[in-house]
C-alpha cells in the first residue's frame, strides 16, 4: 500500500540459519516479505515455521546469517514495541483473570489500545473475571490475540493462530486481523498447516520444508508461475514432463495430475490450469524435497527471482 521503494521490508533474511544441538532447524534462508503484506508461512509440522517466527520475534538468536525486521536488525530494542508475537502454545499466566491479562498488556506497552483489546475479548463473550486457567484453548487464543492486537504493532507474528478456534471464532478473529491490516497497514506473518484457513487471506507466501525456504514471493505471481495439469495416465511417464519444471505428479485411475513450475504451455496431452493455493501447497508438500528448488544452487535461482519481484 505504501511506496515499496521507501518502506523497508517487514522481514528480510540473508543466509539465515538456526541450529539446535547440531541439527539445523532452518538453513540458507533468503527472502524478503514486503511491508503491508499478509504472509502465510506454510509447511508440514517440524519444517521450521516456528523457528522462523521465533527468530523474527527475537525469542531465538540466529546461528548464522542475518534477519532484519522492519528495516532494523532483529535485535534492535526499538522493535519491542513495534512487533507483536503470539506463540503457538499461547502462553498466559493461568492465575490471572482476563482483565488482569489485558492490564498486563496495558502496563507493559506504551501504545496500548484498550478498546481494541476489550472488543476482541467481548466478541468472544469472555468474562472479565474468568481465570485464564479455566478457559478453553480457543478462548486463550482469543485473549492472546487481544494482547497482541492491543499493542498496535507494525508487524504481527502469529504462530498457528487459529488451530484451537471454532469456525465462528476463526472467522471473527481473521476478520479482525484483516481489518487491522486494512486500517493500519499492519504486516501480518502467520504460520499454519491448516491450508483452507489461509485461502483468500494471504497475499504472500513462504513455503518452508525441511528447514529450507522452497517458495517465497507474491502469491499471485507464484500461482501464475505454476500449472496444474491433468492428462491420461499413460502421459505420466518418467520423462513425460521436463524434470526442471515438474514439482509433483500422481496417477489416480486413468488420469494423471501434475504440478509444474512454469506458466508456459507444455507439449503433450495435458490440459492445464492455474492451481489454487491448496493445489500448489499440497503439490509441494507431497513432493520429496529433492525434486524441488532450493536443494541445488542452480534451482534456487527462480525462487530468488520471485523474492525480488
Amino acid at each position: 500500500m505504501d511506496d515499496p521503494t521507501t518502506v523497508p521490508p517487514a522481514l528480510e533474511a540473508v543466509g539465515l540459519g538456526k541450529q539446535y544441538r547440531g541439527d539445523w532447524a532452518l538453513r540458507d534462508c533468503d527472502f524478503a516479505v514486503p511491508a503491508g503484506r499478509i504472509c502465510g508461512v506454510v509447511g508440514p509440522n517440524g519444517a521450521g515455521k516456528s523457528t522462523l517466527l521465533g527468530l523474527a520475534a527475537r525469542l531465538l538468536a540466529p546461528t548464522e546469517g542475518e534477519l532484519r525486521v522492519l528495516g532494523e536488525p532483529a535485535t534492535a530494542p526499538e522493535l519491542r514495541a513495534r512487533v507483536a508475537y503470539v506463540a503457538q502454545d499461547k502462553p498466559l499466566y493461568p492465575g490471572f483473570t482476563v482483565a488482569e491479562t489485558l492490564r498486563l498488556g496495558s502496563e507493559l506497552n506504551p501504545a496500548w489500545d484498550d478498546e481494541m483489546a476489550q472488543q476482541i475479548v467481548e466478541q468472544g463473550e469472555l468474562k472479565q473475571r474468568a481465570r485464564i486457567g479455566s478457559l478453553s484453548g480457543g478462548q486463550r487464543t482469543r485473549v492472546s490475540l487481544a494482547l497482541a492486537l492491543g499493542k498496535r504493532p507494525d508487524l504481527l507474528l502469529l504462530d498457528e493462530p487459529m488451530a484451537d478456534l471454532d469456525p465462528l471464532a476463526r472467522h471473527q478473529l481473521m476478520g479482525t486481523l484483516m481489518a487491522e491490516a486494512a486500517e493500519r497497514g499492519t504486516t501480518i506473518v502467520l504460520s499454519s498447516h491448516i491450508l483452507p484457513e489461509l485461502d483468500g487471506v494471504i497475499d504472500f507466501l513462504l513455503l518452508v520444508q525441511r528447514g529450507r525456504i522452497r517458495l517465497a514471493g507474491d502469491l499471485e505471481d507464484i500461482l501464475d508461475g505454476h500449472q496444474l495439469l491433468t492428462g491420461p495416465a499413460e502421459a505420466a511417464g518418467a520423462d513425460a514432463l521436463p524434470a526442471e519444471v515438474l514439482v509433483e505428479q500422481r496417477v489416480g485411475g486413468r488420469r494423471a495430475t501434475a504440478l509444474v513450475r512454469t506458466g508456459e504451455p507444455l507439449d503433450g496431452p495435458w490440459e492445464g490450469g492455474r492451481p489454487g493455493l491448496e493445489d500448489l501447497l499440497l503439490g509441494y508438500l507431497r513432493a520429496p524435497a529433492a525434486t524441488g528448488p532450493g536443494t541445488t544452487p542452480g534451482e534456487a535461482t527462480p525462487m530468488n527471482d520471485e523474492v525480488a519481484a
Binding site: 519491542r80 507483536a84 503470539v86 506463540a87 502462553p91 507493559l108 494482547l147 499493542k151
Partner: peptide, 18 residues
C-alpha cells in the same frame, strides 16, 4: 515451564528490566 517468558518477551518492556 509455562512459556510465559515468551509472553513477557513479546511485550514492549526490556526482558532485563522485567
Amino acid at each position: 515451564e509455562r512459556g510465559t517468558i515468551r509472553l513477557i518477551r513479546a511485550q514492549s518492556v526490556s526482558p532485563r528490566r522485567w
